[in-house]
Design a protein around this nucleic acid. Sequence first.
DNA 1: AGTCTGCATCTTGGATCCAGAAATCTCGGG
DNA 2: CCCGAGATTTCTGGATCCAAGATGCAGACT
Lengths: 256, 256
Amino acid sequence: MTAGESNGADELIGTEAPRDPESALARLAGRHAAGYRSVGVMAYDIIREAILDGTLPPGHKLRQETLAELIGVSRLPVRSALIQLESDGLVEFHDRRGAVVKSLSSEQAREVYQLRILLETEALRHSMADMTDQRLARLRELGRTADAKQEGGDFVDARTAFYAELYDAARRPIQWELIEQLRLKVGRYMLGWRLVGDDTHHHSHDELTDAVAAGDVEQAVALLRHHLEGVRDGVLDMLEAESLAKAAPTRRRSRS
Amino acid sequence: MTAGESNGADELIGTEAPRDPESALARLAGRHAAGYRSVGVMAYDIIREAILDGTLPPGHKLRQETLAELIGVSRLPVRSALIQLESDGLVEFHDRRGAVVKSLSSEQAREVYQLRILLETEALRHSMADMTDQRLARLRELGRTADAKQEGGDFVDARTAFYAELYDAARRPIQWELIEQLRLKVGRYMLGWRLVGDDTHHHSHDELTDAVAAGDVEQAVALLRHHLEGVRDGVLDMLEAESLAKAAPTRRRSRS
DNA sequence: AGTCTGCATCTTGGATCCAGAAATCTCGGG
DNA sequence: CCCGAGATTTCTGGATCCAAGATGCAGACT
C-alpha cells in the first residue's frame, strides 16, 4: 500500500512539467531499483542523475511527495537527498516553499570554466611532475574505453575515470573533489552540449595523452585549456539557446 | 514551547567524551537558542560551530540522539545537519555506524593550502584587476574591524567579511564558495593555531591592503602567499602536536 | 469593476514510532 | 586463563503522523 503498484505515477502528472519528467524519472528509478545499502543514497543518485541528464530541467519544482512516490520510498530519504543536492549546488531551497532545480547563468558558467581551467591545468602540471609508466598505461586504457563508449551514463563514468587518473585523484583527493564539484555544476549543460555538439574536440583524449606521455607540459596544458574553452563555448551557446527558448515559450500569438 | 526547559541537558553526560563536549555544546545551544526560521539550520550552525571551535574534536562520535537532546530538538533536524556537514567535509558517515568528526591528515592540510594559495592568489589578481575606490574604502574598514575584534566568533566573522571583499565574493560567488570550503576544512585547526600562535603574521591585513591600494599586484600576491604559508606551517605544527598527543593517550596502566 | 481580506487547501518541516543492524556483554568451552 | 559464539542492548535508518506556514481562490467592500 505504501508506494507499491507500478502505475500510481500516472495519476500525478501535470504540476507544471514542460515535457513529462515523471515517467522518465520512474524509468530511472526502475534502473536503480535493486541493491542499495540505504534508500537515501538511492534517492540521491536517482534525482542527481535525473537533473544531470535533463529529465528534471532547471527551474523545475521538486515536490517531495511526488519524488518519493516516483522513487518508491518515503519523503524522508528524499529530503536527505535534496539536502545533499543543495550542498552540491544542484538544487536550491526556497525557505518554506520547497526546492527547485538550480539553473546556471552565463556569468556563473564563465566563472566555472575560469576556475576549471585554473584548477585542472594546475592539477595536470602536478600530475605530470610525478607521472609513472604505470599511470600512463592506465591512462591510455581509460582513454580508449572512454572513446569507445559513446552512449549515456557509461561514457560519463569512463570519462570521469580518465580524468581522475589524469589528475591523480588518488593522491590529490581534495583537488579532485573541487574539480568534480565544478564539473557537477555544468554537468547538466555539458551533456546537452555533447548531444548537439560537433566532434571537433573529440579526440582530444588521444592528443592529450600523447602530450602527457611525451612529457611536454606546456603542450598538454595548452591542449587541456583549449578543450575546456571549447566546451565552455558550447555550454554558453546552449545557455543562450535555452534562454531564448524561455523568452518565447509556446508558439502562441497574443494578438493579431 | 516544544523544546522548552533550559535544563534537560545536564542529565545525559558521559558517553565517551574526552573532556566534556556536552556541557560546552549545551552552552553553544543556549547562545543560538532564539529566533531561527527552522531548527534544522540551527542544529547545523550549532554543530558546525562546535566542530570549528574544537568543542567536538576530530574523531568524536556524533550520536544523533545525544546531539538532539543537547540542542533541544528531535533527531531529524540533527540528521539533516549531519548530512549537510558531510557535504561540507566536516563529518564522515560510516555506513551504518553513524557519523564522526572528520580529522585532517598532514597531507590533506598541505593539499588544502596548495589549493588555497592557487585559488586565493588568482582571486586576488582578478579582484585587483577591477578594484574601485569604493571597494578599497570598504576593505580598509573591514580590515580595521577585523583587527579590532580579537575574540572568538566575532573575529572569524570580521575576517571572513574582509576576505570576501578582498576576493570580490559578490562578483565571483563560485570562486568564493570554493575558497570558503577550503577554509572550512582547516578551520578547526586554524582556530587552535591562532590561540597558541605568535602574531608575527598578524598585521598582514594592513600590509596587504596597502599593496592592494598601491596596485602592486605582485607584492600583494607575495604577501598573501607568505601569509598562507605561515598559517599552513602553524596548522601543520598543530597537527603534529595533536598526533603526538594521540599516540600517548591517557596515563593509565593496564596492570601492576 | 477592481482590490483587499479572509478562508480552505496544499506542502513543507518536525516529532514520534518501528524495524534492522552493529557493538558489546556474557557465558560456555578449550 | 583466554578465546569464541550467542544474546542483549543500543543506535542508525525509515515510515507514518501532526502542526505550521504559504499559496490560491472566493467573496465582500470600496
